[in-house]
């Protein structure tokens, strides 16, 4: 992502992230119906179209699936998809930043990899 992280995320992204969080901490279970765009619109005080866009974002990622006439439901593997997606996007961004900074500071690849390995080991030990 080239746009600064400090700038505001669009509301529909915020809504889709909020839904993802609800799914991650299992407030909404797999195969359970999610909020409709109208309910979300009321909750977030936004236009239903904006809320719908947030839902569509998740449908595009197969986190949600559509039952005709009934609404959107949480996919069985929703959590995995979300985790994978977050891993990808977040790590990608950070790695990008890291590499850029390393180039600027003239740190070679091997040195950088060693630094990462060490830090990763340390955190794992602390958590254990």
């Amino acid at each position: 992502m080239l746009i600064n992280a400090d700038s505001m995320k669009p509301i529909y992204v915020q809504i889709s992230e909020w839904l993802e969080n609800e799914i991650l901490n299992e407030t909404i279970q797999a195969d359970e119906k999610v909020y409709s765009q109208y309910q979300l619109a009321e909750m977030f005080n936004v236009n239903p179209a904006t809320a719908g866009k947030g839902i569509n974002l998740l449908a595009d990622d197969n986190v949600l699936y559509k039952k005709r006439g009934l609404g959107m439901f949480v996919a069985a593997d929703a959590r995995e998809i979300i985790l994978r997606k977050r891993k990808n996007s977040k790590l990608n961004t950070l790695v990008n930043e890291l590499a850029r900074e390393a180039v600027q500071l003239q740190v070679e690849v091997d040195e950088l990899v060693t630094m990462i390995k060490d830090t990763h080991q340390k955190i794992k030990e602390e958590q254990a």
Binding site: I11, F44, N45, V46, N47, P48, A49, T50
Partner: peptide, 10 residues
């Protein structure tokens, strides 16, 4: 003032 109504609009 767009600010005020922004979220409402489509």
């Amino acid at each position: 003032l767009l600010d005020e109504v922004e979220d409402l609009l489509e």
